[in-house]
């Protein structure tokens, strides 16, 4: 028996959220006395894939078929099920994301397995019961559920586990599952990727701006701080509605849910719908000129002041402390 982890590949390497999924899967494998296998699809660097071992995997199944380089949840699920059958996997782990959820769901339906998404902690396993804790009501609460089906598909949220990477390497084995034409009926006509390749869901630090930024032309100081910190940039809903920033930066209840180690909110009031997207963050810093801004109630550190005056000073302080 093997715990199987599906990983997402970005620029030929394993995404950070997927590294967490491997570490999570390896821990579960230890509890179950099982081995840890990773499934990687599409073009990827073999040496990069071997680093799955850093996070506890012993084996990586790699199908380098270029047909699988483009995100395709239908084909991925079809391949994942074949890998699960080959490895006799009863537990399948993925990182929660648009793609991860879709692959998890489709694989679960094929395997008649349960799919539990948004998991925030390691499972509790004892005497044949398997319990997981998941985030519900957009981070306002948690549910502990017993997973009863024989096969369990688990999509874990960022920061569900803190990996402690080692120097171990995994062996990478070629894997050639069957593919079906019916999984390739869609034609991708165009892909628009943001120039910065730091993704919001993967980022450890996010600097985010709200309507207090006053206009799209004022984002320079925020981007500079983000650059100094190696952070991704995000925004509130009105900011993307006004087209000041691209839609994929919109964070909150109706946007992306993020869980970085550090979230720095600049000129965002902290409406409950915005908080719903950031309440998984480890630390929150709020900079707002209004001391009554509700965001301060959800913050760990706060500065009451003018963002345009404070942002450049923070950037300097970061650069100075290097």
């Amino acid at each position: 028996m093997s715990v199987l982890i599906f990983v997402e590949i970005d620029n030929g390497t394993i995404k950070k959220t997927s590294q967490e999924a491997i570490a999570y899967g390896a821990q579960v494998a230890q509890m179950l006395n099982a081995s840890t296998t990773v499934l990687a699809l599409g073009q990827a660097d073999e040496a990069a894939l071997a680093t799955a071992g850093n996070f506890g995997a012993t084996k990586v199944l790699h199908d380098a078929n270029d047909k699988l380089t483009q995100e395709n949840s239908l084909a991925y699920a079809h391949v994942l099920v074949q890998a699960a059958q080959q490895e006799g996997s009863k537990v399948i782990v993925l990182a929660k994301s648009g793609l991860g959820d879709a692959v998890a769901a489709r694989a679960a339906a094929k395997l008649q397995a349960s799919v539990v998404s948004n998991i925030t902690d390691l499972p509790e396993i004892s005497e044949g019961t398997f319990k997981v804790k998941r985030s519900i009501y957009t981070g306002k609460a948690f549910a502990t559920v017993e997973v009863q089906s024989e096969i369990k598909v688990l999509a874990i949220r960022k920061n569900a586990i803190e990996p402690e990477p080692t120097d171990e390497l995994a062996t990478v084995e070629p894997f050639s599952p069957s593919l079906r034409d019916s999984d390739f009926v869609a034609t991708i006509t165009q892909v628009e990727k943001a120039s910065s390749n730091l993704s919001l869901t993967d980022a450890d630090i996010i600097v985010s701006g709200g309507r207090g930024m006053k206009g799209p032309e004022n984002w320079g100081p925020l981007e500079e701080l983000a650059k100094a910190l190696g952070a991704a940039t995000g925004c509130s809903k009105p900011v993307s509605d006004l087209d000041w920033r691209p839609h994929h930066e919109h964070i909150g209840q109706t946007g992306i849910k993020v869980a970085p180690n550090l979230y720095i909110a600049c000129g965002i009031s902290g409406a409950i719908q915005h908080l719903a997207g950031v309440n998984g963050s480890k630390y929150i810093v709020v900079i707002n000129k209004d001391p009554e801004a509700p965001f301060f109630k959800a913050a760990d550190y706060g500065i009451v002041g003018d963002i345009f005056e404070i942002l450049p000073r923070l950037t300097k302080a970061v650069e100075a402390s290097r």
Binding site: E71, G98, V191, H247, H248
Partner: peptide, 10 residues
């Protein structure tokens, strides 16, 4: 929406 961007498909 895909991670960090948009994909158009038919």
């Amino acid at each position: 929406e895909i991670d960090g961007g948009k994909e158009y498909l038919e």
